[in-house]
């Protein structure tokens, strides 16, 4: 089960090497994203595209506001 986290935890995890992933479409990512975030649009997410991520490090995913 995926754990929901608060922004303070996101900041701490990013500082400790977590991979921050925005799952919105590319245009929205290009307009605005969290510092250092990687873009992996949900519609394109598969084993091939996820290969850019390190499986050994935590991954934090986000979109606009969870709605």
């Amino acid at each position: 089960m995926v754990t929901q986290i608060h922004r303070d935890e996101v900041r701490k995890m990013a500082d400790h090497g977590a991979q921050i992933v925005e799952v919105l479409p590319e245009a929205e990512y290009e307009d605005e994203h969290l510092p250092g975030a990687i873009n992996l649009p949900l519609k394109k997410l598969n084993a091939e595209t996820a290969a850019i991520l390190d499986r050994e490090r935590p991954v934090v995913v986000y979109c606009n506001d969870g709605l």
């Binding site: 995926v2 754990t3 929901q4």
Partner: peptide, 17 residues
Amino acid sequence: LGFREVYDYAAGKVDWA
């Protein structure tokens, strides 16, 4: 896909900004 540690920042970038 085999990722063991996955977290969801549900409040997202609206909350961040």
